[in-house]
Design a protein around this nucleic acid. Structure first.
Length: 606
RNA sequence: GCACCCGUAGUGAAAUGGAUAUCACACCAGUCUUCGAAACUGUUAUUCUAGGUUCGAAUCCUAGCGGGUGCACCA
């Protein structure tokens, strides 16, 4: 459609001989405000200064030519063109065009564009795309920051899938390193101080995880006041790396398993299924090797007993890749990881999603990888998001000042249950639905805004269930579902093929209910918003910005709820009912697919 | 100190360089015998400051002010 319009625009301005100036310019926009038409062009405004005429005058000249095209039939699908504001030319499509697009949403035939396929594109047809996100560390708590990384990573992965990508989800976990050393250092302290024992097998998983959190916090805080213990911590760290202490190995394996099992429980609730898990215990080996090789080729060099990469030569920080104890740092492990990922399954593009506090470090690692494996580095991208921070300041698992993902999910689920208490739903289903609502509330709060910005989270004030919220979107779906159910019970025929514009116009004129006369119909606002869904997804993908989807869904839900409040959709004997039911179905399709992209489930009722 | 990011109603956010800066919360006033009130309708209020580029700036550039993050052996 828009190709036809762009050609018409170029045709209309061809006499001014500015083809070169116009090539590459975006000549056709989608106005945000629907009252400005379906498409608009600013061609008159960018051309006018060059030609030394007033924008509005030029726009009117162009308009005349376009009107000739319309009456000549070479701009079919366009109903009306007009000049507006400082010199925009707005295009209004015919109702037939919109109605055909609505029918596409409802086309549920196999391989059709509609139904659960509506919004899919082939932008990345078959491209192998890797998304690494969440990345919690065994032996440490899964906090709300991980929740944020998960919500963003999962939705980016899904948008990738909807764009035709062959997507794999990776999770990278720090199972070795200082934090594990602190854990065992803290355990030794507590064992001496209060005779603390390692949990028995019969203890619940969440108690075991709480135990790990406790000994880590002990180790980290105690070390802060006793920096003289550095040698002890390094000793433990070394033992973890080379697995030389038989007793510690056994405890380590247990603790790691507890953490992993615990994380898996959370992923299940969140709706993430990882294809592959990577560990620092593996990436450290590969990273160490690569960096050592790189010393010979001059990429890395020795300094003060450590091996460094001179990032300052590239406008970055100089950072340590192997510390003076011969152990690889985060930076070296990142080098190893890039190679591990690529060897596992060669990809076309790989995204690593982390909080932006790691921007500088990852930039250095990627620059180092570029020197070693330029072909792989070219395919790696770091997408960073803001931080989920508390009103009290930065979270710190060292001081125990963290909100865990588990507790947040629990609290939100309780709130959802409270709201549901009047509904007659069985206990099992009730719990499941409440969890879906909790996840929706959390994820939507994260995904409705630009991923780069911090979210200041007040644990006292709970997340919203109203207005601009995940549950609001879910509620709109449940409402639409219940309308469709009523229509089904009344035997309303909803055959898409039966709907045509002539009958609709006729029916609108003949409908005797005043309320129904206000109804949106093909060419109405709701319809025009609905058919933009595929474009919204494309934009989200190209800009890595899930919030466009969230923002869009809110607009759709809000418009639908107004429609719902003003118009009775299913009325016995009403000739417009089949169309209104179809429109409701289209709304439900778009909302469901959009929520799916955000990783949010739609409950059957709530 | 250096580097990067950010300053939009009382609060939290949105806005491919475009048209009257949008949305939600909160506040106030209404709406349940209808298909689910987790909803709807109405009211109030916003681009940090100073220059510049542009037909046009919340958006781009410069300076200032304010906030965040990172700057050598944690991740």
């Amino acid at each position: 459609m828009n190709k036809v319009i762009i050609e018409a625009i170029l045709g209309a301005v061809s006499e001014h001989g500015q083809d070169d100036f116009l090539t590459g310019k975006n000549l056709l926009d989608r106005p945000g405000d629907l009252s400005h038409g379906d498409y608009s062009t600013n061609v008159a405004m960018i051309l006018a200064p060059k030609l030394g005429v007033k924008p509005v005058e030029l726009a009117n000249q162009i308009l005349e030519k376009l009107q000739v095209f319309i009456s000549g039939g070479s701009l079919s699908g366009v109903k009306k063109v007009e000049v507006a504001g400082p010199g925009f030319i707005n295009f209004y499509m015919t109702e037939e065009v919109t109605l055909e697009l609505i029918k596409e949403i409802l086309d549920e035939t196999k391989g059709g564009s509609g139904g659960e396929n509506y919004g899919k594109s082939n932008l990345h047809n078959g491209k192998k795309m890797i998304y690494e996100y969440t990345d919690p560390n065994p032996f440490k708590q899964f906090h709300i920051g991980h929740l944020m990384s998960n919500a963003i990573g999962e939705s980016l992965a899904r948008i990738g899938e909807w764009s035709g990508g062959n997507v794999k989800r990776y999770c990278y976990q720090g199972d070795v390193g200082r934090h594990v050393a602190f854990t065992f250092y803290g355990f030794d302290l507590l064992k001496k101080e209060e005779g603390m024992e390692w949990p028995s097998d019969s203890m619940s998983l969440s108690d075991k995880v709480a135990f790990l959190g406790k000994i880590y916090a002990k180790g980290a805080t105690h070390f802060k006041d006793h920096p003289e213990d550095e040698a002890i911590v390094q000793e433990i760290n070394k033992k973890i790396y080379d697995k030389s202490d038989f007793e510690m190995n056994a405890l380590y394996d247990l603790g790691k398993k507890w953490s992993m099992d615990h994380f898996e429980e959370i992923y299940k609730v969140l709706g993430t299924k990882f294809n592959e898990y990577f560990f620092e215990s593996d990436s450290s080996v590969v990273g160490l090797e690569e960096v050592q090789k790189g010393i010979k080729s001059g990429i890395f060099e020795e300094s003060e007993g450590a091996i460094i990469f001179k990032g300052e030569n590239y406008g970055l920080n100089t950072r340590v890749f192997i510390n003076k104890f011969g152990l690889p740092t985060y930076e070296a492990k990142e080098v190893g990881l890039a190679l591990l990922k690529y060897n596992k399954d060669p990809y076309d593009i790989s995204y690593t999603i982390t909080a932006n506090e790691q921007d500088n470090v990852l930039a250095v690692s990627y620059k180092a990888i570029e020197q070693i494996y330029p072909e792989i580095a070219k395919k790696n991208f770091h997408l960073s998001h803001g931080m989920l921070r508390l009103t009290t300041g930065k979270m710190s698992s060292r001081t125990g000042d963290v909100v865990t993902g588990e507790s947040m999910l629990h609290d939100m689920t309780e709130l959802a249950l409270e709201k549901m208490k009047e509904r007659e739903i069985g206990a099992g289903e009730r719990k499941e639905i409440a969890e879906q609502i909790a996840v929706a509330a959390i994820k939507y709060t994260i995904l409705r805004q630009t991923i780069g910005k911090d979210i200041i989270f007040d644990p006292q004030k709970s997340l919203s269930f109203e207005g601009d919220s995940g549950p609001y979107l879910q509620y709109s779906c449940v409402r639409a579902k219940s309308v469709l159910e009523k229509a089904k019970k009344q035997g309303v025929s909803i055959n898409v093929e039966d709907i045509n514009l002539g009958d609709l116009n006729n029916d609108l004129n003949n409908a005797n209910s005043p309320k129904i006369c206000q109804l949106d119909w093909a060419g109405g606002k709701l319809e025009k918003m609905l058919v933009r869904f595929p474009e919204v997804l494309l934009r989200s993908e190209t800009e890595h910005a899930p919030h466009y989807v969230g923002q869009y869904l809110l607009d759709i839900a809000s418009e639908f709820n107004s429609f719902y409040a003003n118009t009775q959709i299913v009325v016995e004997g009403d000739i417009l009912t089949p169309y209104k039911v179809l429109l409701t179905k289209a709304v439900l399709t778009v909302l469901t697919n959009g929520l799916n992209v955000l990783g949010i489930k739609v409950p059957s009722r709530m």
